[in-house]
Simulated assay, not measured.
Amino acid sequence: MFLGKNMQKSELRKKQTAKLKEFANTKEKKTEDSILLEKLLETELVKNSQTIGITASLPFEVDTSELTARLWDAGKEVYLAKARNDQAHTLDFLHYTYMSKLQKSSFGVEEIADADAAVKNELDLVIVPGLAFALDSHVRLGFGGGYYDRFLAKHKCQTVSLVNTPMQFATSEWPIEKTDMPIQTIVTTDKIY
Rank of each mutant, 00 (worst) to 15 (best):
I112G: 15
Y148W: 07
G130R: 09
V46W: 00
A115T: 08
Y96N: 10
K39F: 05
D180G: 00
T185W: 07
L152W: 08
A69L: 11
E42A: 15
S34D: 12
D190Q: 12
L71G: 08
F151A: 09
W72Q: 12
Y147S: 09
M167F: 03
M167Y: 02
K5Y: 06
F23M: 00
K39H: 08
E22W: 06
A117K: 10
L45K: 14
M167Q: 15
G142E: 10
T179Q: 12
K19Q: 15
A153R: 13
F143G: 02
L123M: 05
Y148Q: 02
E66M: 05
K191A: 07
A24H: 01
V163C: 12
V109F: 03
I127S: 07
G144N: 10
Y193S: 15
Y98T: 04
E28T: 10
V109M: 13
Q168P: 12
K5N: 08
S10K: 09
V126D: 05
E77C: 03
I112A: 13
A134S: 14
V126H: 06
D116W: 00
D190M: 03
I127G: 02
Y148L: 02
E42Y: 01
R70V: 00
G142L: 10
W72R: 14
L40I: 05
D149G: 14
T31L: 11
K14Y: 04
R140C: 06
V128H: 11
A74T: 02
T64A: 06
A117C: 10
L102F: 04
V139I: 02
T64I: 03
L12E: 12
T159L: 11
S34K: 05
L37E: 14
Q158G: 02
V109P: 13
T165H: 07
L131N: 10
L71K: 01
I112L: 14
L3N: 03
M181L: 06
S161K: 09
M167S: 09
H155K: 07
G144A: 08
M7Q: 13
E173D: 15
D190R: 05
C157I: 04
Y96H: 14
L123P: 00
F107Y: 14
D63N: 15
Q87D: 12
V46E: 03
A170R: 11
K21Q: 15
I176V: 15
M1H: 12
V119M: 06
L40W: 05
L91N: 13
L67D: 07
T159V: 05
E66H: 01
L80T: 12
M7Y: 11
M167P: 02
D86P: 04
D63K: 09
E32D: 06
T90I: 08
K27S: 08
S65M: 13
M167G: 02
